[in-house]
């Protein structure tokens, strides 16, 4: 057997192909309620575990700490605090973006969780950890049910 140093598989006898399949995902029991409330009523719903005193955002139908079934739904705020952020200069396929995008983890007020989303209305010089932000939703007609019904988070 031989071990050469060629690192380009296309120079050898090769085949190209994919692992293609199409998928339709459904968001589940808790996800369905969360996304419908966001899309139809502009509300951020969370679930609360009384024994752990923990409020889940995004909501879950069970508590991963104590394994209770969660059916206590609470309305959270559409505001939060930038917990951390980063500047993305490339898209997910590694292509350079014309403008860098600010990606942030936002702790949602009145919950113990948060959402990863884009920030808008702020440039990368002035964005700060600890900054108060508020969700900006898309026009009702453009909402499809999903996290992209939030267009971005902007300084509150």
């Amino acid at each position: 057997m031989s071990f050469d140093k060629n690192t380009n598989p296309l120079k050898l006898h090769h085949l190209v192909g994919d692992m293609e399949a199409d998928y339709i995902y459904t968001p589940g029991v808790a996800g369905d309620k969360f996304f419908k409330a966001l899309r139809d009523d502009e509300k951020f719903l969370a679930t609360h575990c009384e024994s752990c005193n923990h409020t889940y955002m995004p909501p879950r139908m069970y508590c991963e700490r104590c394994f209770s079934k969660l059916d206590k739904w609470v309305e959270a705020e559409s505001t939060g605090v930038v917990d951390t952020y980063s500047l993305a200069h490339e898209d997910r396929d590694g292509e350079k973006l014309a403008e860098p995008v600010i990606v942030a983890f936002i702790r949602i007020d009145k919950t113990d969780g948060g959402i990863i989303h884009q920030l808008g209305g702020v440039d990368h010089e002035s964005v700060k950890i600890g900054m108060k932000v508020k969700a900006v939703l898309k026009d009702k007609s453009k909402r499809t049910g999903g996290l992209n019904d939030i267009d971005h988070f902007a300084p509150a």
Binding site: S2, H14, L15, Y25, G31, K36, G145
Partner: peptide, 26 residues
């Protein structure tokens, strides 16, 4: 699933592969 207000997410993975044949298969 097909109801108008149903929430679904559609996705097609777009990864491409190049498999080299190795010694025996080549």
């Amino acid at each position: 699933l097909k109801a108008e207000d149903a929430i679904t997410f559609k996705w097609r993975p777009n990864a491409k592969y190049a498999w080299s044949g190795g010694i025996a298969y080549s």
